[in-house]
Design a protein around this nucleic acid. Structure first.
Lengths: 211, 211, 211, 211
DNA sequence: GATGAATGAGTCTTCATTCAT
DNA sequence: TATGAATGAAGACTCATTCAT
């Protein structure tokens, strides 16, 4: 809550960051619609006109938040991935980085995962885009592996499943923080990669006999 | 669009169903916040006071929608699952039923997956609950299998990952309807079950050497 | 000022008129910008949502007011004019009708003359149009008269001058209501018509001698 | 657009003029309400605090603008009028000066005629005053002429009509700049003076017979 | 003297919700 | 029962105006 009185004068860049932090906080807690500019400005410790002066309309602000958090996450992952290694190692390092990021940036994750996907506004695009890029990346990884999936559709759908599994597991993990990030990441890696390995080896599961 | 004139007197159950159908339609298209009671009543062909008389506040209405659709989906899956079979067969039949339901009930699925998770209100609870039940169910299945995961946490987290993979794949599928439900379901089944199989067989993936 | 309590239920048409009357009143007193929807709704004795439900946005409301008042005035004049008479008689009867209308509808006149011309919005068009039609009408009258002005530009500019003189005189008259409408109208008629008559008779005024 | 950097220190009078020029420009383009102090300060090339330091509140600034432009126009006309001549010559020279001024100072004219009359604020007074002085002047001229109007009211109302005709014709002229100022002025002079002449000569127009 | 940063107060507009018929 | 009519409350956004450096 903002303490009474006039906010101290701060250089523009600092204020902007302060505001964005507040916005990410509020958006992640309440979602886009329920978040009010009033509350954001209050949490940021400034008045509404400043909010508008610095970051434009509510939609613009939200989009900016998403972009910032998405970029931060992408960078965290990119930094974590070991690029010249085998596909499995790349995937593994990516997963570790992903869970690491989520663990240390709950609010970012909530904004990205929960809030953004639903809203029909112009940001849905940003988010869908980013998720699409993630899926494509994983699909490419699968395709590069020693034994690639047969069709592009298959690769993509498996990638989509994997990304969803990661998201869901991340959510689950937020409710069970007693496990370290590495363990959770490894579990998903195993599930997915071993399953994937069998798949391309022709070790296909099939229903008992008839059908 | 509502037809002119005074609505006929109908038995309560029928009216209620009519309204809920309209509500699910509107909520799935617009999301909770953007949906207006005005539009719902219009689509339902009744006046707003009736809406309130029958189904209470907007939040209550939404929660009721979620409950109904969740129940429908659960029942569809329960009906599809073959209960006395091996765990893998149960999972497989469950997945098939799930994708079957999603394919035939887009609106229900959208309400359940997209709209409900975001809203911070009291319905999040309903949804989280249902999802929790699904995860538990799958976890139980895994635990019953010949070689169960070591810990309860492991089983649950794998189940969460699986559920998330299913959701994500369902979404992906809605954008790629050219593939039949069975194919998509089978793909997920394979990925997950073979991975899972390796896992409990001690076939663990691990990073190259050092580390 | 609106008395406390809920407004009585009224049929739509009546309410609409009531609101428009209030709007014309407020707009004529304060002008478009300074008039607030709050005040209009208060004067109308209803709540703001009704205002919006019945008459749309502020701009729409204003445009509707202008259209209504313009139409009323046009009809008053059209009714007053004697169409099959000589041009001078037509002009005279038009002027009488005009001053008659202004005298009995101060608020209408203020909205039309004062408020509408300045605003840059979409209504400026309505107003400019109406004034344009008035000027064209007068110009046509002049052109039909026994001895028409030489050029179209001349006719139009004289008509513009005449219309302006009428408006200005109407304003002046509102501040000097002691004179009857007929007298004021006659005075303008004389000034203009006799001047016009001389003009076309070649009785041109010209500066003393040199220059 | 404001040039970058800190404004040079300038003598007060120069600064003030610079600001007023900007203000007249903006007010004439946008009208009182839509003009923002932000835009004025930007066009003037100074910061808002300076604006306030030099010229006070928005209302004060507007009033000052009106006063300045009104004075300029009055002086232009006063300079143009030939004072010791016959009334008709005085009127003629005044009209010529008036149209000359309008042609060369569109912005001033817009502020004076269009923007000021509408606003209900304290400046309406300034404007009404100035217009009143103009009307009185013309009325005096008419009264001095060889055959004066019978009553003071008559003289004043005719003067008001004449002034309005002038304003309206000036507006019309701004939309038809192809005609030279002199021609337009002469046209009005003729219309009015000849009409006036007839009037005082007893050449009264009157309706056909009956009535 | 000059300004970037800051805000109080207000405007339009919408929506869930409820009377009164 | 069924509804047209009505509203309280809130939210996004803007602007004239002023500190604090």
């Amino acid at each position: 809550m903002r303490t009474e009185g006039r906010a101290k004068r701060l250089p523009r860049a600092v204020r902007e960051r302060q505001i964005m932090d507040a916005a990410v906080d509020v958006f992640s807690r309440l979602g886009f619609h329920s978040a009010s500019m009033d509350e954001i400005s209050e949490v940021a410790g400034i008045s509404k006109p400043m909010l508008y002066a610095y970051l434009g309309s509510k939609e613009e602000l939200f989009a900016t938040c998403i972009r910032r958090e998405a970029t931060r996450m992408m960078e965290a992952i990119a930094t974590g991935v070991e690029p010249d290694q085998e596909p499995d190692v790349q995937l593994w390092s990516g997963l570790r980085a992903f869970f690491g990021f989520v663990g240390e940036n709950r609010a970012s994750w909530q904004v990205l995962h929960r809030q953004a996907s639903t809203q029909g506004g112009p940001f849905a695009i940003e988010l869908t885009d980013m998720r699409g890029r993630a899926v494509s990346l994983v699909a490419a990884l699968l395709t590069q592996s020693t034994k690639a999936p047969a069709t592009k559709l298959e690769a993509e759908s498996l990638a989509a499943a994997l990304v969803g599994a990661g998201e869901s597991l991340a959510d689950w993990w937020l409710d069970h923080p007693e496990e370290p990030a590495g363990v959770v990441a490894a579990r998903l890696m195993n599930l997915v990669w071993m399953g994937f390995g069998d798949l391309v080896d022709g070790n296909v599961w099939h229903p008992p006999s008839r059908r």
